[in-house]
Amino acid sequence: MNTSFTQVTQSTKTRFGRLGQYGLLIAFVGICLILSLTTPRFFTVQNLMIIVTQVSINALLAFGVTFIIITGGIDLSIGSMVAVTGVAAASFAHPDTYPVVVPVLIGLLAGLFFGAFNGFVITRSHVPPFIVTLGTMTIGRGLALILSKGRPVSNLSDSFNFIGGGKILGVPTLILILVVAFIGCSILLKKTVIGRYMYAVGGNEQAARASGIPIGRVKMIVYTLGGLLAALAGILLTSRITTGQPNAGQGFELDAIAAAIIGGTSTSGGTGTMTGTLLGALLIGVISNGLDLLNVTSYYQEVVMGAIIIGAVVLDSMNRTNKN
């Protein structure tokens, strides 16, 4: 009857939806296969580790921005936050000054403060996040230059440089931190009350409010998380290049947003997963690595990357139209 008819159509729709979710994974595996066959150096432990290491900073930023985009927001200031927090940490990381926890905590606190500031202005002013974070992006860049007096902050302690440049049992610390952050962010998003609220706020803010969800608090939390993860990325980058660079992180926000979008996070909010974002970041990393190995110049790589972003969103919207 009536109900069985709707159920039939719905179950086919769900099946299409699942296929869409796996589409990215299929694309990722496919590209890896092609690269393994065309370039002998691609599928080696050493090269794969290089890829993940290169990807990790972007992935951390992308995790943060995924939370934010799921709530229907955006954060353009994370690249600048990488510079501010990196410079702030580096200033306290010279040899024989403070124990290594001090620069790390300073960096994280700077990110926490910066992210919370974004959240505070966005929730209090009702100015769109795009504009608020466009402003704080510029402010952040200025702060990084002021803090460092426009010069790179170098001569950092060995223990600080180990954080992002060392290896534990042969595995780069960056990869270990990435794995831990991924698991943490996934649990937060999927298994906690606050994670569910993020989806609700992005899915329908008015209904979320009417359901008694503290919208302001949810937004404060996601922008603060974005700041914290940007700080983590900033500290790791500074440690890895052994210098606090006031010009670091320019354009990082766009790479992070691209990873989230390729990973299936809808810019209109309400959908997205950490697994998708991680795959998106890895896909970007694999493609740029593969193009390197195939001796494609970086100019062409930019063109390819842009095309992939558009392609991902087109596929996503086609998938969505199918469902409707």
Partner: peptide, 26 residues
């Protein structure tokens, strides 16, 4: 009333989610 993209289950429990959670974990 509804968060359209979320499931029936998630919509039902949304208003009182903390009842189904311990220490913030659902």
């Amino acid at each position: 009333g509804l968060i359209p993209a979320l499931s029936v289950k998630y919509n039902i429990t949304l208003g009182n989610l903390s009842t189904y959670a311990d220490g913030g974990f659902i």
